[in-house]
Computed example of a mutant assay.
Amino acid sequence: MIKDKINEDMKSAMRAHDTARLGTIRLLRAAVKQREIDEQIEATDAQVMEVIAKMVKQRRDSVEQYRAGGREDLAAKEQAEIDVLASYLPQQLTEAEIAAIIDEAVAAAGVTGMAAMGKVMGLVKPRVAGRADLGKVSALVKARLTA
């Protein structure tokens, strides 16, 4: 389970006195624990992946904001956290792989035009979950349906 790997990595970071990595892992553990408490569940690997993906997205947004504000030091700190969090995510899909999945979904749905956006995204989302940025996927679906 991914939670076990996170715990082991936390112990390794403690032993190595890697405070930056340790801090990020502790934030991740706290976010997972918070979700478990809020939903009164024991988080599965898929749910932990969702938490990680959300944290990565938040940090990417922060990096953009910091760079726009000229705060390269804070952007670098956020990027380091992204690197730690991304190590728990599965290999990310390439744009070509995403495009192939979108094409299959459009063919399977047998629809065209922007009215089919929800239906196509419903087919694509489970196949790319945790392996691609859904904002990017949505933009590619929109481009495919309007072409």
Rank of each mutant, 00 (worst) to 15 (best):
I2C: 05
K3C: 03
K3Q: 07
K5E: 04
I6G: 01
N7A: 08
E8V: 14
D9L: 09
M10I: 13
S12T: 12
A13W: 03
A13Y: 03
M14Y: 04
H17Y: 15
D18C: 06
T19M: 14
R21K: 14
T24S: 01
R26T: 01
L27N: 06
A30T: 01
A31I: 00
A31S: 05
K33V: 01
K33F: 02
I37T: 14
E39C: 12
A43W: 01
T44G: 12
T44E: 11
A46F: 15
V48P: 01
M49P: 00
M49Q: 03
V51H: 11
I52R: 03
K57F: 09
K57L: 06
K57G: 03
K57R: 11
Q58E: 13
S62H: 10
S62M: 11
Q65R: 15
R67V: 15
A68V: 13
G69N: 15
G69T: 11
E72P: 13
D73E: 14
L74T: 01
A76I: 08
K77Y: 08
E81T: 06
E81D: 07
L85V: 08
A86I: 07
S87Q: 05
L89G: 07
L89M: 12
Q91R: 13
E95C: 06
A96C: 03
A96G: 05
E97A: 06
I98R: 01
I98Q: 00
D103T: 05
A105C: 15
A108L: 13
A108P: 05
A108N: 10
A109M: 14
A109L: 13
T112I: 10
T112H: 10
M114W: 09
A115W: 00
M117V: 11
V120F: 11
V120P: 08
K125A: 10
P126I: 00
P126Q: 02
P126Y: 00
P126E: 01
V128Y: 14
V128D: 13
A129G: 00
A129P: 02
R131C: 04
R131P: 09
R131F: 04
R131M: 10
A132M: 08
A132R: 05
D133N: 14
L134I: 09
L134C: 03
V137K: 00
V137L: 00
S138K: 05
S138Y: 06
A139F: 01
K142G: 06
K142I: 04
A143D: 09
A143W: 10
L145V: 09
